[in-house]
Design a protein around this nucleic acid. Sequence first.
DNA 1: AGTGTTATGGTTCGATCGTATCAACGGGCT
DNA 2: AGCCCGTTGATACGATCGAACCATAACACT
Lengths: 219, 219
Amino acid sequence: MPRQADHDQRRRQIAEAVWRLASRSGLEDVTLRQVAAEAGVSVRLVQYYFGNRDGLLLTSLEILNADAERRAKERVEAAEEAPTSRGTVRGVLLELLPLDEERRTRQLVYVAYFVRFLNDEKLGAVARDAPPELERLVAGLIAWGQERGEVPADLDPRPEAELLLAATDGLQTSVLLGQRTPEEAVALVDHQLNRLFVGVGYDRPGHPPGGRAGDVTAR
Amino acid sequence: MPRQADHDQRRRQIAEAVWRLASRSGLEDVTLRQVAAEAGVSVRLVQYYFGNRDGLLLTSLEILNADAERRAKERVEAAEEAPTSRGTVRGVLLELLPLDEERRTRQLVYVAYFVRFLNDEKLGAVARDAPPELERLVAGLIAWGQERGEVPADLDPRPEAELLLAATDGLQTSVLLGQRTPEEAVALVDHQLNRLFVGVGYDRPGHPPGGRAGDVTAR
DNA sequence: AGTGTTATGGTTCGATCGTATCAACGGGCT
DNA sequence: AGCCCGTTGATACGATCGAACCATAACACT
């Protein structure tokens, strides 16, 4: 029991227990006792680091959000090395699908909190931040694709970005429910990307476009 | 009190209390006592009609689902009087948006139950039924539109239907969170419909197509 | 070396949970 | 008329909840 513990790590350890419980069976199973047991600490320690239950729920969500933001930034930067705007947009969208355990858990946690976002201003603020920013980002990428001639110039980037993100969000739901495999969801994202991006293939460099451009764009 | 009570109405009265509580603050506030208070009956009565809490949650969801199905059928039939396949598809999609209090509550209830769908087989079965059926319905309507020359023949109806429904589902989320007005969501649905349906206007009969078809289709 | 603050564990308290039990009312049936 | 069962109310019980309190080990600082 050292005097100088790593508070951030301790908080993260407990927050991860909250995520697991919330994603498994919802917020009603996120009790101080269950969280303590799941994290392998005493109830007192949870109180010490988070105060009361509201603080526990809020701080755990904030940590989750910070994680998501950092992860998204990483993936955007990685995708930006790709020579096409399409690759970057695809990277952003795929961050919204439950393609690995981390993303799956994160998205389930958001769902578990969802109804609270509407009536709890503090929680709602945390949740309402991200999406508009994403829409600006994707719209900007589409506009950039237009400058590079990868996206038809007569498209309006903003609604295209909004629809793309909404569709991905809807696919997320179906994948979580097990109605669709992650692969099918990715294929549908690519299908929609095919109508936006002409003359560029998937984010694999050197992939042959295949057929006339008119075929790829499905119109 | 009377020996012969209307059981269905009683059950519905209590189920509606469950919906209100669940949509307001999540399943953790759906306790027997709170439900009884919200419905204006005694706790014993809730037990009498639903057994235990699991039964209460399950049966309330089943009643909600039956309502949704009936309402969707009504709307489809009403839309089918419209002369275009587009009007019918639009009617189906708009049923998925929180455009009135009934739809809003219904969709919030689904969200409140969501994480339970994954681990509770009984609940999951109720939730997993509807969506695939919707996809077949919309895909069929698109195919019908192709026969009538309202939809380009080279489109594959199935992925178009899936994307349309996924996008609407995603828009639902943003409207519930207050990030988008219902009007904006409907506008985006129409935007996406514009790329599928050529040469037919909105479902208002006699609405002038306006400009060349190429303008309307955004491509 | 002693002292004070930080970090942690254990325990208790009143409230509320789901569930079960006891009690009573009231109309349909013989 | 009288019994009886469907229907409703009130209440009790054990478990668990969030929150608070007390105790103490261990390191930092002087």
